[in-house]
Write a protein that binds this DNA or RNA. Structure first.
Length: 557
DNA sequence: TATGACTGCCC
DNA sequence: ATTCTGC
DNA sequence: GCAGAATGGGCAGTCATA
């Protein structure tokens, strides 16, 4: 039975529940807080509350964004309170979180009567607004009229993360429990609809089973679990298993119905306009199709061959690619799965059955083509295929259980990925920064350098890394970095270059970001090298070599 | 008109 | 994207 | 084993400002 209280949809009530969630690390207790709260809400507020607990301000499939980040929030807060940058920085320093800074500065304001709907309307107003000045004024106005705890969560929602130990998967669980529906049904409906808010209402109404495939409305993607070695893959999958190359591109889902085609990204955004050659190639491929694959920059000579991700990146995010860009960086779509055919979902069919459907389509040209695959049994098979994939310019391998269903959202072990770090570098830390959130009080983010050459000890920054070390190691290093700090600029410390780290990464790319002229993709820390001196670290020549840049002597001018 | 800060979204 | 941590 | 937290590098688009 739904009990509706006066003011049940008040935002300050939502904030109280969020505090309750935040106050415990126990999942069951977090769920209980939501399960107590949800029934009291009318439908429209229930949808908003469910989205907000997932740190989502608009339905996922909704293209709107607030275009508000830390900078606009900061400016709005400064304008409202008249506080200096220094005082605001101090408040930020107490929490390491934008929302908690706002809550700190605007403490003691009485709760407002604003509803969840009112808050949602403010986000909508931000999405409609043009220019950062207008957005700052909207944020300022909202902060001015909200209570102390409400401003905290309003800001956290703007920042896109709550940091209360709750994410969308737990909200799905809470919806299932609240309305006594099977969790799998709730998850499935959410994967199909892409809006936990709508799903919460359907769960209450007992209408989840009515959720069907709606073509041109994106479905959640199936993800692969990373494994480090071929042996681990052999162990994780039944034998024989399927191997496909892992392309370094953009994951995309294509919906095709006759001449109509639409492309969606992993975040369920509509990216159709950016890839006209792929759209043209998919037209007329079939009726009621949903395809899963990778958009890649293709080699114009051998169109089955992918070019580096950096080439594709010039196409990424473009609203309307110019003819020049289309010619310079042609894109292809490598399709490896089929989720629907003739308007029927086939997620529960086996990989093999889905691939059979794919094969039955008449692929017309090479801007959209089927990914090839092979069968493997042993670790040696995997090793051989991995080497071949790398030779073909691809990132690594995806191994799949041929009998497995397509399970969106879950990083199960029926799809497993094998990548390999390019190499490791020994580097010295030149600067460190305080972290955010639970790392607010430690120095957790390290900028590091290599030596200019064997004879030139000049240090050239080449990257920044924050992960790979345990909390205990970070705590130890924090003390050490405090003791060798030479200068402070806000949260940043310059340190004496003494601490040597071994770092790893996927690739090295040319970059203007760091002094070395190169940057690392996916940098992470392997270990602290207390056995090494700063004079023993790697040099720029080594970085160049890893980047694949030829003869360094020719371009040192 | 050119440049750079900010934001979002790809990996 | 990757990695570590708490449950 | 899952879910959550913290955070790298780079490009396009938009707008404020020099």
């Amino acid at each position: 039975m739904t009990v509706q209280l006066a003011g049940a949809d008040a935002f300050h009530r939502w904030c109280t529940v969020a505090d309750e969630v935040r106050s415990t690390t126990k999942r069951l207790q977090k769920l209980a807080a939501l399960v107590d709260y949800f029934p009291s809400l009318p439908d429209d507020a229930l949808a908003i509350a469910a989205r907000f607990f997932s740190a989502i301000v608009f339905p996922r499939h909704d293209a709107r964004t607030t275009q508000v980040g830390g900078s606009i929030l900061w400016a709005a807060l400064a304008s409202l309170t008249g506080l200096s940058d220094e005082s605001l920085a101090e408040a930020y320093g107490r929490h390491g979180d934008a929302g908690d800074m706002v809550g700190d500065v605007l403490v003691d304001r009485p709760a407002s009567a604003h509803s969840l709907g009112w808050i949602e309307e403010r986000f909508a107003a931000l999405a409609r607004a043009t220019g950062s000045t207008a957005r700052r004024e909207i944020v300022r106005g909202a902060l001015a009229s909200l209570g102390g705890n409400e401003v905290r969560y309003f800001a956290k929602l703007l920042a896109g993360e709550l940091r209360i130990g709750l994410k969308e998967a737990q909200v799905e669980e809470a919806v299932a429990r609240t309305f006594e529906r099977p969790l799998e049904q709730v998850r499935h409906a959410n994967r199909l609809r892409g809006d936990i808010g709508e799903v919460a209402i359907l769960a209450r109404q007992g209408r989840l089973e009515l959720v069907r495939l709606a073509l041109f409305h994106p479905i959640g993607f199936m993800l692969a679990q990373p494994l480090a070695t071929p042996e681990a893959i052999v162990e994780a999958l039944p034998s024989p298993f399927v191997l496909e190359d892992k392309y370094d591109g953009i994951r995309a889902q294509a919906h095709v119905d006759g001449e109509e085609v639409r492309l969606f990204s992993r975040t369920l955004d509509d990216i159709t306009r950016g890839y006209p050659e792929v759209v043209a190639s998919l037209r007329g491929l079939g009726a009621g199709l949903v395809l899963d694959g990778e958009l890649i920059a293709v080699d114009p000579v051998d169109r089955r061959r992918a070019r580096p991700f950096a080439v594709l990146q010039r196409r990424l995010g473009r609203k309307a690619p110019t003819p020049a860009v289309l010619a310079e960086a042609p894109v292809g779509f490598v399709v490896y799965d089929l989720l629907a055919i003739d308007h029927e979902l086939v997620l529960d069919s086996s990989y093999e059955a889905r691939r059979a459907h794919l094969s039955s389509l008449s692929w017309r040209d090479d801007s959209a083509l089927m990914a090839s695959n092979t069968l493997a049994v042993t670790a040696h098979d995997v090793e051989t295929a991995f080497a071949r994939a790398r030779d073909a310019g691809n990132e690594g391998l995806i191994a799949k259980d041929p009998a497995s269903a397509y399970t969106p959202g879950r990083r199960g072990k029926s799809w497993v990925k094998l990548k390999r770090a390019l190499a490791t570098l020994d580097v010295v830390v030149t600067g460190v920064e305080r972290g955010h959130g639970r790392r607010n009080h430690v120095l957790s983010d390290y900028t590091f350098a290599v030596r200019a050459s064997e004879v030139d000890p000049t240090l050239l920054n080449v990257g920044k890394a924050y992960n790979g070390l345990t909390d205990a190691e970070i705590a130890t290093l924090t003390k050490r970095f405090e003791s060798i700090t030479t200068e402070r600029f806000g949260r940043f410390h310059t340190v004496r270059p003494e601490v040597v780290l071994e770092v790893t990464f996927d690739i090295v790319q040319r970059s203007t970001r760091h002094k070395a002229g190169y940057a690392l993709r996916f940098p992470r820390i392997v270990r602290v090298r207390d056995d090494k001196l700063p004079t023993e670290i790697d040099t720029l020549a080594r970085v160049r070599e890893l980047a694949g840049d030829s003869d360094p002597s020719t371009d040192d001018a």
